[in-house]
Protein backbone atom coordinates (compact mmCIF):
# COMPACT_ATOMS: atom_id res chain seq x y z
CA UNK A 1 0.00 0.00 0.00
CA UNK A 2 1.36 3.39 -0.96
CA UNK A 3 1.03 6.33 1.34
CA UNK A 4 -1.41 9.02 0.23
CA UNK A 5 -1.94 12.20 2.21
CA UNK A 6 -5.33 13.81 2.54
CA UNK A 7 -5.53 17.47 1.71
CA UNK A 8 -3.01 17.36 -1.15
CA UNK A 9 -3.85 17.54 -4.83
CA UNK A 10 -2.63 14.82 -7.20
CA UNK A 11 -1.89 14.55 -10.92
CA UNK A 12 -2.32 11.53 -13.16
CA UNK A 13 1.46 11.50 -13.60
CA UNK A 14 1.99 10.97 -9.85
CA UNK A 15 2.98 14.43 -8.71
CA UNK A 16 1.47 15.87 -5.53
CA UNK A 17 0.73 19.55 -4.94
CA UNK A 18 0.46 21.40 -1.67
CA UNK A 19 -0.99 24.90 -1.89
CA UNK A 20 0.31 27.79 0.15
CA UNK A 21 -1.34 31.00 -1.06
CA UNK A 22 -0.43 31.34 -4.74
CA UNK A 23 2.54 29.00 -4.36
CA UNK A 24 2.25 25.37 -5.42
CA UNK A 25 4.72 23.05 -3.69
CA UNK A 26 5.33 20.05 -5.96
CA UNK A 27 6.75 16.60 -5.25
CA UNK A 28 6.22 13.01 -6.32
CA UNK A 29 3.98 10.47 -4.60
CA UNK A 30 5.00 7.46 -2.58
CA UNK A 31 3.59 5.27 -5.35
CA UNK A 32 5.88 6.96 -7.90
CA UNK A 33 9.03 6.60 -5.82
CA UNK A 34 8.29 2.93 -5.24
CA UNK A 35 7.80 2.35 -8.95
CA UNK A 36 11.14 4.02 -9.69
CA UNK A 37 13.13 2.16 -7.06
CA UNK A 38 16.36 3.72 -5.81
CA UNK A 39 16.42 7.25 -7.16
CA UNK A 40 19.92 8.33 -8.14
CA UNK A 41 19.29 11.83 -9.48
CA UNK A 42 16.59 14.47 -9.53
CA UNK A 43 16.75 16.79 -12.53
CA UNK A 44 15.15 20.09 -11.50
CA UNK A 45 14.65 23.44 -13.22
CA UNK A 46 16.30 26.56 -11.86
CA UNK A 47 14.40 29.28 -10.06
CA UNK A 48 13.02 31.75 -12.57
CA UNK A 49 12.20 29.16 -15.21
CA UNK A 50 8.66 28.97 -16.51
CA UNK A 51 6.74 25.69 -16.29
CA UNK A 52 3.52 24.79 -18.05
CA UNK A 53 0.75 22.53 -16.85
CA UNK A 54 1.22 18.93 -18.04
CA UNK A 55 4.58 19.74 -19.58
CA UNK A 56 7.80 18.21 -18.30
CA UNK A 57 9.89 20.20 -15.89
CA UNK A 58 12.49 17.66 -14.87
CA UNK A 59 13.11 13.98 -14.37
CA UNK A 60 13.83 11.30 -11.82
CA UNK A 61 16.64 8.89 -12.61
CA UNK A 62 17.37 5.47 -11.24
CA UNK A 63 20.18 3.16 -12.32
CA UNK A 64 18.25 1.68 -15.22
CA UNK A 65 15.44 4.15 -15.88
CA UNK A 66 14.52 7.75 -16.30
CA UNK A 67 11.06 9.14 -15.67
CA UNK A 68 9.97 12.63 -16.66
CA UNK A 69 8.30 14.92 -14.16
CA UNK A 70 5.26 16.86 -15.36
CA UNK A 71 4.11 20.09 -13.82
CA UNK A 72 0.57 19.95 -12.39
CA UNK A 73 0.27 23.76 -12.73
CA UNK A 74 1.57 26.60 -14.90
CA UNK A 75 3.74 29.34 -13.48
CA UNK A 76 7.26 30.34 -12.54
CA UNK A 77 9.65 28.29 -10.43
CA UNK A 78 10.48 30.28 -7.30
CA UNK A 79 12.58 27.68 -5.54
CA UNK A 80 14.10 24.24 -6.10
CA UNK A 81 14.99 21.78 -3.38
CA UNK A 82 18.77 21.87 -3.54
CA UNK A 83 19.05 19.20 -0.85
CA UNK A 84 18.03 16.65 -3.49
CA UNK A 85 21.09 17.51 -5.54
CA UNK A 86 23.40 15.66 -3.16
CA UNK A 87 20.87 13.34 -1.60
CA UNK A 88 18.33 12.14 -4.18
CA UNK A 89 17.55 9.24 -1.83
CA UNK A 90 15.49 11.68 0.27
CA UNK A 91 12.71 11.25 -2.29
CA UNK A 92 12.68 7.51 -1.56
CA UNK A 93 12.85 8.02 2.18
CA UNK A 94 10.10 10.61 2.50
CA UNK A 95 8.43 11.59 -0.76
CA UNK A 96 5.95 13.94 0.87
CA UNK A 97 8.48 15.57 3.19
CA UNK A 98 10.87 16.30 0.32
CA UNK A 99 9.31 18.56 -2.25
CA UNK A 100 11.05 19.18 -5.58
CA UNK A 101 10.04 22.66 -6.73
CA UNK A 102 7.87 25.56 -5.64
CA UNK A 103 5.91 27.30 -8.36
CA UNK A 104 4.21 30.66 -8.31
CA UNK A 105 0.95 29.83 -10.04
CA UNK A 106 -0.22 31.79 -13.03
CA UNK A 107 -3.66 30.24 -13.07
CA UNK A 108 -4.74 28.72 -9.73
CA UNK A 109 -7.97 27.55 -11.41
CA UNK A 110 -5.85 24.74 -12.90
CA UNK A 111 -5.86 23.13 -9.47
CA UNK A 112 -9.48 22.19 -9.94
CA UNK A 113 -8.48 19.74 -12.66
CA UNK A 114 -6.30 17.76 -10.24
CA UNK A 115 -7.46 14.82 -8.13
CA UNK A 116 -7.93 14.74 -4.39
CA UNK A 117 -6.50 11.92 -2.27
CA UNK A 118 -9.60 9.79 -2.81
CA UNK A 119 -9.45 10.20 -6.58
CA UNK A 120 -5.76 9.39 -6.68
CA UNK A 121 -6.24 6.30 -4.55
CA UNK A 122 -8.84 5.09 -7.02
CA UNK A 123 -6.58 5.82 -9.95
CA UNK A 124 -3.66 3.76 -8.70
CA UNK A 125 -6.11 1.08 -7.69
CA UNK A 126 -5.01 0.60 -4.11
Amino acid sequence: MSKIINGLKYSETHEWVKIEGDIAIIGVTDYAQKEMGDITYVDMPDAGEVVEKEEEFGALESVKASSDLFSPVSGTVVERNDALEDAPELVNEDPYGNWIIKVQMRNPAELDELMDAEGYRDMIGE
Binding site: Y41, E61, K64
Partner: peptide, 13 residues
Protein backbone atom coordinates in the same frame (compact mmCIF):
# COMPACT_ATOMS: atom_id res chain seq x y z
CA UNK B 1 27.25 4.53 -14.47
CA UNK B 2 24.98 7.54 -15.06
CA UNK B 3 23.35 5.47 -17.78
CA UNK B 4 20.06 7.35 -17.53
CA UNK B 5 21.64 9.92 -19.88
CA UNK B 6 22.05 7.33 -22.60
CA UNK B 7 20.08 6.27 -25.64
CA UNK B 8 19.10 2.81 -24.41
CA UNK B 9 17.15 4.42 -21.55
CA UNK B 10 16.37 7.96 -22.69
CA UNK B 11 15.65 7.15 -26.37
CA UNK B 12 15.01 10.43 -28.26
CA UNK B 13 15.76 12.48 -25.15
Amino acid sequence: TLQAREQHIRREK
